[in-house]
Simulated scan of single mutants.
Amino acid sequence: MTAAAVGLSHSPLIGQNDPALDVLDRVGEAITTAKKFIAEFDPELVVLYAPDHYNGFFYKEMPPFCLATEANAVGDFGSAAGKVSVDTGAAKLIAQGVLDRGIDLTISARMTVDHGFAQPLEMLFGGIDAVPVVPVFVNGVATPLGPVSRIRALGTAIGQAADELDLRVLYLASGGLSHDPPVPVLEGAPPRVADALIEGHPPTPEQRAKGEQRVVQAGRDYVAGTSTILPINPSWDNQLLDLLQDGDLAAFDDWTVEWMGQQGGGSAHEVRTWIAAYSSLQASGGYEMNYRFYESIPAWIAGFAVTTARQR
């Protein structure tokens, strides 16, 4: 098997609260570079690590991570809705291989995914049905959160299991980096909000539109300097990228849940998807990061990064 990895930040504010044109141009160039890398690699399977934002996973049952054998996108924030082209056969084989390696993996036969999964598939492949995918949800929002070492173990096991498929596999990470958007939390939530976070009642179109507008306004407030959210942290973001580039993934085991939130904001744990993807690639042998882009983008409330890497 030949393996590669791409890391790509996402944001619900892309296309809805955009930065200056020169920033968009730089981001566009970075995405084009990643697309060229993918076209050259020509993956036969994409293992996509992404978080959820209380659209598919709720506190009634909140696994630390979950692999899908089928998936449907909800279509939030203007992202694509509908059936994701999951390679069910490959997903089942990888799932069994992960379980055989002692990782307590949750399986979903009908996963609901949101923009965290849809955006990278749309941006890099042109649609959510354009390439065979194995979706892997990695919780990066709902506390309590486990140690990062378990995410590394997950990524390693998936990499080892996928290695047995004898396919060109692209590990794709979606999320982060530092960002602190207005995501609801269960602790201290009003009864109506708590019930929605636990039971997962689908919002009405009006409720969804209102919630999405709240996030858009948060981006505008952040740019205007009137927001109380934790600032984007380029230093922490680049520390993460340095460790990924150096292949020093074991160093992430020292990153505590509390420290990550303090440094990167309430949604900084989405970087767990990057750690998982690069752990999968490392499981196939040494790798080299051959492209790295980073920009702090207040309009998107995100430290935005794009990376590509391939086996040596």
Rank of each mutant, 00 (worst) to 15 (best):
A4P: 04
H10W: 08
S11I: 09
I14T: 07
N17P: 09
D18G: 08
P19H: 06
A20K: 08
D22N: 07
R26K: 14
T33N: 11
A34D: 10
K35Q: 15
K36Q: 15
D42E: 09
D42K: 12
A50E: 00
F57K: 03
K60D: 13
P63V: 08
P64W: 02
C66H: 08
L67N: 11
A71M: 09
N72G: 06
A73Y: 09
A80L: 13
A80F: 07
G89V: 12
L93C: 05
Q96A: 14
G97K: 09
L99I: 15
D104R: 15
R110Y: 12
H115R: 05
F117D: 01
Q119P: 00
L121D: 01
F125P: 00
I128D: 05
I128Q: 04
P132I: 12
V134G: 00
N139V: 12
G159M: 11
Q160A: 11
E164A: 15
R168F: 08
D180G: 01
V185K: 15
L186P: 03
E187D: 15
L197N: 05
I198G: 03
H201R: 15
P202D: 10
E206P: 09
R208H: 03
A209T: 08
R214T: 13
V215F: 13
V215Q: 02
G225I: 09
T228D: 15
P231S: 07
I232Q: 01
N233P: 06
D237Y: 00
N238G: 01
Q239F: 04
L240T: 07
L243Q: 01
L243G: 00
L244E: 00
A251E: 07
A251S: 14
D253Q: 04
V257F: 05
E258H: 11
G261K: 09
G264N: 07
R272P: 02
T273R: 00
I275G: 00
A276N: 05
A277D: 02
Y278H: 13
G285S: 10
R292H: 10
F293V: 06
Y294E: 02
Y294H: 13
Y294V: 10
E295A: 15
P298V: 08
A299C: 09
V306Q: 01
R310F: 03
R312I: 14
